[in-house]
């Protein structure tokens, strides 16, 4: 059993194996994500009841909250990969860290944009320098910083390590985003779902939210694999295994 695990780990660490496995997995991740999204959207937009305070404007929650969760989840994935890249100098960990950044930036942008659109009718303003909004904006800049750093360094191995350091330092921002609504009592509402006692949202609204969150996570998984195998092919394009791929003939 242990041997099998070690074996699996080594195979994932090897670019040709990763390339093959990710090619098989990615369509399943994305396909399942799209099916769940269709179901979650129908449930959230059609079946779920109207909110008694916010009317139908609350339905933005089904994309806003999953995007915000993913913006932090992707960051943690990037930081773990960056840490592995620094400690063990694993090539695949470097690839995973670098390729997570643009996806995380996308989710962060979505969380900010949908939040802003939701804020206008509810708060009367597109933007306030509230602690939650500001720390989420800092997250976007951290992602953009990782992308810029990676583009600025020619040597791929060196870029991988630099990205790892920046990703790890930026982890400080994650608990700040999470606790911002408790530490500073400003405009953004407190947590509704992740409270330790019962969540203050009815199950008929909560279930589609969780379905959308799982769908977003699977979509991240699939697009991450696609970007990572592209990066592998870009780095190893002149290796024998890449030249011998059926798609390259």
């Amino acid at each position: 059993m242990f041997r099998a695990l070690v074996n699996f780990y080594h195979r994932l660490g090897s670019p040709p194996h990763f390339y093959r496995i990710s090619g098989r997995l990615a369509p399943w991740f994305i396909g399942l994500a799209l099916v769940l999204m269709a179901g979650g959207l129908y449930w959230g937009l059609v079946l779920a009841p109207t909110d008694y305070e916010q009317g139908d404007a609350y339905r933005i929650i089904y994309i806003h909250v999953p995007a915000a969760w993913l913006s932090m989840f992707v960051y943690m994935c990037m930081a773990v990969a960056g840490g592995l890249a620094l400690v063990w100098r694993m090539k695949m960990a470097e690839v995973m860290a670098v390729t997570a950044a643009p996806i995380g930036a996308g989710f962060t942008l979505l969380a900010l944009a949908t939040g802003s659109i939701w804020g206008k009718p509810m708060w009367g303003t597109w933007w306030v320098w509230d602690a939650r909004l500001t720390s989420e904006l800092v997250l976007l800049f951290l992602y953009l910083g990782v992308i810029a750093l990676d583009n600025a360094i020619e040597d791929r191995r060196l870029a991988g390590r630099a990205v790892g350091i920046l990703a790890l330092v930026g982890v400080v921002n994650i608990p700040i985003i999470h606790y911002s609504v408790e530490w500073w009592n400003t405009l953004h509402q407190g947590p509704t779902v992740t409270k330790f006692d019962a969540p203050s949202i009815h199950w008929s609204m909560l279930v589609p939210l969780l379905v959308m969150a799982v769908a977003f996570m699977l979509y991240f998984g699939g697009t991450w694999l696609l970007r990572a195998r592209n990066e592998v092919l870009r780095r190893e394009g002149n290796r024998r295994w890449a030249m011998e791929l059926p798609e390259a003939s």
Binding site: G55, D56, A57, R59, I60, L110, A113, T114, I117, P121
Partner: peptide, 20 residues
């Protein structure tokens, strides 16, 4: 119409579809 919030709800969903 989304109870009068249609412009907000659909623009939020539109941006999401575009980014994804």
């Amino acid at each position: 119409a989304m109870g009068g919030y249609g412009a907000y709800v659909w623009s939020a969903y539109g941006i999401t579809v575009a980014v994804l």
